[in-house]
Simulated scan of single mutants.
Amino acid sequence: MALQLDITTLVLMFITLAMTSFIVMLMIWRINRDMPGVPYWMVGTLLNTASALTSVLSAQAGWADGWASFMGTSISLLASMLVLEGTLQFRGYDSRRRQQLFLALIPVFLIASWTYRLDPVARDIFQDSFNMTFQLLAGVVLVWRTASRDELQANLLAASASILIGLVVSWRLALTLGGNELAGSGADSPVTQWYIFAGANFHVAWIFGLSVACYFRSRQQEMLLAREDSLTALPNRRWIDEKFAQTLTEARRSGEKFALIILDINDFKQVNDKYGHSAGDEVLTKLATRLRKAVRESDFAGRLGGDEFIILARQMDSAELLMQVVERIRQQLDGKMTLSGTGSSLDTGVSIGAAVFPADGDSLDTLLGAADASMYRDKKQQKQAHCAPLSTDS
Score class of each variant (00 low, 15 high):
Asp334Thr: 15
Lys336Ile: 12
Ala301Ile: 08
Met323Val: 11
Glu297Lys: 10
Leu312Ile: 00
Asp317Leu: 11
Leu321Lys: 07
Ala301Thr: 09
Gln332Ile: 00
Ala313Gly: 02
Gly305Asp: 09
Arg303Ile: 05
Leu333Gly: 11
Arg314Phe: 12
Gln315Phe: 09
Glu327Asn: 04
Leu333Cys: 10
Asp334Ser: 15
Arg328Leu: 01
Leu304Lys: 06
Ala301Trp: 01
Glu327Phe: 07
Phe300Arg: 14
Leu312Ser: 00
Asp299Cys: 08
Gln324Phe: 14
Arg296Gly: 12
Lys336Asp: 14
Leu321Gln: 13
Gln315Leu: 03
Met323Glu: 09
Lys293Gly: 15
Leu322Met: 13
Ile310Glu: 03
Phe300Gln: 14
Arg296Tyr: 12
Ala301Asn: 02
Gly335His: 08
Asp317Ser: 15
Leu333Gln: 04
Glu297Gln: 12
Ala319Cys: 06
Arg314Trp: 04
Leu322Trp: 00
Asp307Glu: 09
Gln332Cys: 13
Asp334Cys: 14
Met316Asn: 06
Glu320Lys: 06
Leu333Phe: 00
Glu320Leu: 14
Val325Gly: 04
Ile310Lys: 10
Leu312Asp: 01
Ile311His: 02
Val295Glu: 03
Lys336Trp: 09
Arg328Tyr: 09
Arg314His: 10
Gly305Asn: 02
Glu308Asn: 11
Ala319Thr: 05
Met316Lys: 07
Val325Phe: 12
Glu320Trp: 05
Val326Pro: 01
Gly335Glu: 11
Gly306Glu: 05
Met323Arg: 11
Arg303Cys: 08
Ile329Val: 14
Arg296Ile: 08
Glu297Trp: 04
Val326Cys: 05
Phe309Pro: 03
Glu308Pro: 13
Arg328Asn: 10
Ile310Met: 07
Asp307Ser: 06
Ala319Tyr: 01
Lys336Ser: 15
Ser318Ala: 10
Leu322Ala: 13
Val326Ser: 05
Leu322Ser: 11
Gly306Trp: 03
Ala313Val: 06
Ser318Leu: 02
Arg314Gly: 07
Ala313Ser: 10
Arg330Phe: 04
Arg303Asn: 12
Ile329Cys: 04
Phe309His: 11
Glu320Pro: 00
Ile329Met: 06
Leu321Ile: 14
Gln331Asn: 14
Arg296Trp: 12
